[in-house]
Design a protein around this nucleic acid. Structure first.
Lengths: 125, 125
DNA sequence: AGGATACATCGACGCACATCGATGGTTGCG
DNA sequence: CGCAACCATCGATGTGCGTCGATGTATCCT
């Protein structure tokens, strides 16, 4: 287990901006991390970019192994990651599977990246 | 090596939106993935949030192990990830190290997440 | 029914990650 | 100088990821 006891500084120690700030709780942090994990691979970044450039954000999976230079099982592995993270929709059409980007999922994590940095004493602590 | 040969469809096959789209090249995809990897951990998400909530986006590292319930080496490991990804600045002040969030780095990846989905025939293919 | 095509899953392999205790390097103080 | 505090790195360990070939599943065509 981790050491949770506070450090020994006095209250007005000169070292320490940022003490006792509010902490994001675990669940939302884990939810965000799941999506960032799905984005944390260059192949998947390229896949999402490819989807976004396709008409209506949709493409047939059959193009993708050849376009990216990866095997078909590898593509399937990556698309499952994107699907599980909610970043793409899956649509079976006959023999083929079409994947469509979900911009609202991107916006959700994008809004986290717009973290407003507190400029002065309206900070939390 | 991967199979790069194209599939066998005829030109007007009904299956296939999204053929022959432009592909993001490797280097920018890898650069983006490096930053997403740095964000792909719930502990680091909470650290960035903590920094953002601190005054001027700066906090002293000494608070963080206790605040997050992690050991000091683990904190150091995570801060190095964030630093290597360019997401935070490091500032040694006497015995202490202050970390400051770099909003411009967040904006850079954030702009990727604003992927505009092509709605119609101005698509690339 | 039988064959062919597209996609998913399985098993295996190598590599990277998250975590911690222990150790090393800097800085400040008495 | 010597000690204490803060932080970084090292070594070890368990876990998860990315990749592929082989195999399974679903669909279409003849």
């Amino acid at each position: 287990m981790a050491q949770v006891t506070a450090h020994q500084h006095t209250e007005d120690d000169e070292c320490c901006p940022g003490a006792d700030c509010e902490l994001m709780s675990r669940e939302p942090a884990e939810d965000l991390a799941v999506v960032f994990k799905a984005l944390a691979d260059p192949t998947r970044v390229r896949l999402l970019h490819y989807l976004a450039e396709s008409e209506s954000g949709t493409t047939c999976a059959c193009h993708l192994p050849g376009a990216l230079g990866i095997s078909q099982p590898t593509l399937s592995f990556h698309m499952r990651k994107l699907y599980d993270a909610g970043l793409v929709e899956r649509d079976r059409r006959g023999r083929w599977v079409h994947y469509t980007i979900r911009p609202e999922a991107l916006e959700r994590v994008g809004s986290f990246l717009a973290l407003p940095v507190r400029k002065s004493r309206d900070a939390c602590c």
